[in-house]
Amino acid sequence: MPSFNKQTRISPRKMVLLALMITLSMGLHAAESMMPLLFPMPGIKLGLANIVTVICLFIFYPRDVFIIVTLRVILVGFVAGSFLTPGFWISGSGAILSFLAMAAACRFPKYSAVGISLVGAVAHNIGQLAMVSVLMGNQAVFYYLPWLLVWAVPMGLLTGFSAKAAIKALRKTGLDGTMGMY
């Protein structure tokens, strides 16, 4: 039986890795926002930060990945100056819903990183639309859901294959789950 007096200790190694992952996802997020708009439709993004979430789901426990995702959203809000603005809530709800969906998908070992990434891309778009409709008090935006589903496929494949390559490289370094989950 776990004791409540016992302090849950986080190893320095894990702390460094968590910080590294948060920094990495913030960097990818910043790189993405600097990119000129590639797509004619608003709301379609590459979702590069999702690559880190997928990788982390293969390395860390889900609760650690939750911390990474939440801190990334908050810190990006600070850095971009969008903290607590509508844009912050929209991207935050997309990121959290996408994390929840991917963490659930991870429980089915038959999905590879690509499948998990597809689930994440779809959930990200649904989360964003849901937050927009809550903020505007109008469900009209769900008209665009089919388009966002179609676009989620190439975006999910891109992030999925990137994550897969990164996980493969991490295996060689021994930083992944082969050393036991962090």
């Binding site: 597809l118 689930v119 496929v153």
Partner: peptide
Amino acid sequence: MSRHDWILLAGI
């Protein structure tokens, strides 16, 4: 990509 990934993709 596993077969299940393809099924998922088709589902979307």
